[in-house]
């Protein structure tokens, strides 16, 4: 793998880690993400590539686009890349608390409803955004 490719995967892993768990990506996860990116066929069609490039430039919109794709094209290559990073991060012991069920506080319902409402609104916004990206 050449230097530019390595840098590209590192940057993708960093962005996805920030999106999924809000933390800096560790060395092992970087290594695994690079490994699977090299060996798996991530060939994207033109439309997915356009979306992916947009997200790498504007990571703040990942949750909207991810949510929109979950509705419109759940098997998209963009979701596939996020899925691989999700699985890699889930296997990091220091992040296990972010993936495993835990004891609940009295406010869990409030949080749960907030996540639900957030997911719905970001998805609706993402549906419009997706149309816009595809147009340009």
């Amino acid at each position: 793998m050449n230097f530019a490719e390595e840098n590209k995967y590192n940057s993708e892993a960093q962005i996805l880690s920030n999106y999924l768990v809000g933390t800096q990506v560790d060395k092992k996860s970087l290594e695994l993400y690079s490994g699977i990116s090299k060996t798996t066929n991530h060939s994207m069609n033109e439309s997915d590539l356009k979306i992916w490039n947009f997200l790498m430039k504007h990571p703040g919109f990942i949750s909207s686009i991810d949510g929109a794709l979950a509705f419109t094209n759940p098997k998209s290559s963009v979701r596939k890349k996020i899925f691989f990073m999700f699985a890699i991060l889930e296997c990091r012991p220091e992040l296990s608390a972010k993936f495993m069920s835990s004891n609940f506080t009295g406010f869990y319902w409030v949080k749960f409803i907030w996540y639900g409402v957030h997911a719905v609104f970001t998805t609706i916004f993402g549906l419009f955004l997706l149309q816009w990206i595809k147009r340009f």
Partner: peptide
């Protein structure tokens, strides 16, 4: 769901 909110929920 998006993966981020999906994970939390």
């Amino acid at each position: 769901l998006n993966f981020k909110d999906g994970r939390k929920m």
